[in-house]
């Protein structure tokens, strides 16, 4: 197609929107609502995922050893944990000797009453408490790891925060499913509405299309203005919610930072540019893609050129 023809089809596509104002506005509004919801879900999703991830990294599994276990056996467990680290199951692990365990216990429970702890003298009441503290990378494999560790030589007990780990893992999956389901429904609604708008556009321009075909217009020339119409609706429908989301996200982050400063550390928002770095291209692509697919589907059905 020539450049002048592309410009003509582009102008005709925009004119279609003007001629068909109510339907076009309804489509833009629905598309905006869809992409706005997508943006909200995405922003919540990535922030929640980051929070879950940081919580996951804090979840520890602790391995205790049988009385009199040799350092060699303990080191072998350490080697097994190195393997798990390489496989992406374990984020990190730390060996806590019996002395370190006692020092830590004293610091936690005898603070301000150090003289009470001195009563133990050189005896370490936690002599059998040498352990590995393990931080999970993949929370879903925690159960598997615990079973594996329980089977290793010298291991007396493996402690884990089972409920927290499983709940976080399940909740994360649930959010993922809801997120995907909602997006699919919204995409279907948007495609349906673009379909309707283009169908009305075709029926309004039925006579013009018939003349174009008789005069010798190529298929693409007849179709192009409707595709422009669909894509433009998709594009505007994506830009409006992105602008709204930009200001909304910025306001919420600064509001939470001001009003709920005590939550900082737990409720750390992902920076605006990180969220929008993904959200902007994905939303624009969604808008344009839905507009294109919606209009092409309608043309295939209603415009046998």
């Amino acid at each position: 197609m020539k450049i002048s023809s592309i410009a003509y089809c582009f102008r005709q596509g925009l004119k279609n929107i003007g001629r068909n104002k109510m339907f076009s506005l309804a489509s833009i509004a629905t598309m905006s609502a869809c992409i706005f919801l997508f943006g909200v879900f995405y922003s919540l999703g990535v922030n929640f995922e980051a929070m879950v991830k940081s919580a996951e990294e804090g979840v520890a599994v602790t391995v205790f050893f049988q009385e009199g276990t040799s350092q060699e056996t303990i080191d072998k467990v350490g080697e097994a944990l190195d393997d798990q680290k390489r496989d992406g199951v374990v984020a990190d692990y730390k060996f806590v000797s019996a002395d370190e365990a006692w020092e830590s216990f004293k610091a936690d429970y005898f603070k301000g009453h150090e003289e009470a702890a001195e009563g133990f003298g050189d005896d370490n009441p936690l002599a059998n408490s040498a352990n590995y503290e393990i931080y999970m990378k993949d929370i879903s494999k925690q159960e598997e790891l615990v079973t594996y560790l329980q089977g290793l030589e010298g291991v007396r007990e493996v402690n884990q925060s089972e409920v927290a780990a499983q709940t976080l893992s399940d909740f994360n999956s649930l959010i993922g499913y809801i997120f995907t389901g909602m997006i699919l429904i919204l995409v279907a609604v948007a495609v349906f509405l673009i379909n309707n708008t283009v169908t009305v556009g075709i029926s309004v321009r039925k006579e013009e299309i018939a003349i174009m075909k008789l005069i010798g217009a190529k298929d693409n020339f007849v179709r192009a203005p409707f595709v422009v119409e669909g894509v433009f609706i998709g594009l505007v429908g994506a830009v409006i919610p992105l602008v709204l989301l930009y200001f909304l996200y910025r306001s919420i982050v600064s509001y939470v930072a001001d009003q709920f400063s005590f939550l900082s550390g737990f409720l750390d928002f992902i920076p605006l540019q990180d969220v929008f770095g993904v959200l902007v291209p994905v939303s624009l692509l969604m808008g344009v893609g839905i507009g294109y697919i919606g209009s092409r589907m309608t043309l295939k059905k209603h415009l046998q050129v």
Binding site: K2, Y8, R19, A210, I211
Partner: peptide, 20 residues
């Protein structure tokens, strides 16, 4: 079968635009 929303010139030019 003229396009009612376009003037005389545009109706004739339309046939040429269509064939690019």
């Amino acid at each position: 079968r003229l396009l009612q929303d376009r003037n005389v010139y545009e109706n004739v030019a339309f046939a040429m635009k269509v064939v690019e």
